[in-house]
Simulated scan of single mutants.
Amino acid sequence: MKTKISTLFALVLCIFSLNASAIKLSKDATISILTCAPGNELYSLFGHTGIRITDEANRLDIVFNYGTFDFETQGFYFKFAQGLLPYQLSCTDFDYFVRSYHREKRSVYSQTLNLDSIQKQYLMDLLVENYQPQNRSYLYNFLYDNCSTRVRDIIEKSTDNHITWTAEPSTKSFWNLLDEYLRRSPWTQWGIHTILGSPATSTATTREQMFLPDYLMYRLDSAAYNGNRLVEPIEVIYQAPEQDLSTPWYLSPFFVFAVCTLAFILLLQKYKSRRLLKAVAIPFFIATGIIGCLIVFLCFFTKHPTMFPNFNALWANPLNLIAAFFLGKRELPWIINKYISVYLYILIIGFLLWFLFIPAVPYASMVIFVWMMYLCIRLR
């Protein structure tokens, strides 16, 4: 019964009573950073971070969460694509928070901050201030402003930016960091690599690496404040069972693209039919054109900072949509013939440049380069 009263009290306190002076923590209150393991859904592939406030004197055990969004937001998907989807700071009961990760079989870890009572109160006041209706929303940015970086920033602010972050020098790029989580989902990996521009190949600093919850947890574990450890050793709140969620190699984009390309080439080499060639080419010109439109949209009409330049536009050209319309005609207009020739040269140059100094194209897409070059040569 006490737990139910405590939970109800905490939720009512969070929802109705939070203001700059609503909660005065006792001297025994603790503040912990919760790190949640990656999940299976796209939005949970990289894990999650929350801040737990525990204070028995106030019957308080709650979690502040900067990763909340509302599917009912008007124009949700369009705003998400534009980088204009508002995320919010939410507050929930700790038991409810952990149960949700238990259901999803995602481990939860905790690190207690070694702060004095004044700093704990200051951090709590900052959270309460952030939770005000006029402050709780922010424009989410996956690499630079998310549930993990917000936690890092508020910890730094509560300690007057006197934290010493220690880590071994790293040459990892944002791509390298993301790939650590995407290898088990190769199709998602290919998709993200396709839409992210070359800025994502830049090396991430120690501080920038903390956009990933796991990296924040490990950086906190080695961080120092006033010559002492910033946090207590990592504690396991819930250990999920091991799961093998990897995708078989024969279902990877590279293998599928390679097999399909080889099969189509053998088919078209055996049957020298112009009509069959066009029937095969049209869907691929449409698909690459649509992907090209998406890349152009992300590069020039969104707030995402790592989309331009994107060298995947060398094979995913929006003009392919127009070319696809004319491929169905008996005779190709001269301008379409000219476009196919120019597109072929672009593909050849892009393929060669990839070997030299453009790493920002996934390996699977190099098969698409080869396939589209073959189609252009046959269509000319």
Rank of each mutant, 00 (worst) to 15 (best):
L298S: 00
I5R: 13
V296W: 07
S110E: 04
N317C: 11
K278A: 15
T149V: 12
N141A: 03
Y87A: 11
S365F: 03
S252A: 04
Y101M: 07
W371Y: 11
V236T: 10
S185Q: 14
Y144P: 00
W334M: 10
S110I: 04
G350T: 09
K338Q: 09
S32Q: 13
T92F: 15
Y122Q: 14
N65D: 14
K2L: 14
P169A: 14
L375Y: 06
I335V: 09
A323L: 12
F142V: 08
A37R: 00
A287W: 04
S202C: 06
Y345M: 15
S170I: 03
F255S: 11
L352V: 15
L127G: 06
I237A: 02
D145I: 10
L42M: 01
L18I: 15
P186K: 05
E208Q: 13
I282D: 12
Y138F: 14
D145Q: 12
P233K: 02
L332T: 05
I346L: 13
I286Y: 03
I23G: 00
L182P: 00
S185H: 09
I31G: 00
M373W: 07
R274N: 15
E180N: 13
S158V: 05
D116M: 07
L45F: 04
E232A: 12
L375A: 08
L177R: 01
Y250D: 06
A287Y: 08
R378S: 15
E56L: 09
L245D: 15
F76N: 00
A313R: 06
S137A: 05
I265K: 10
S21C: 13
P169D: 10
F142C: 03
S90I: 06
I155V: 11
G47Y: 00
A240C: 07
Q189G: 14
C36S: 08
F264V: 14
G350E: 05
P38V: 11
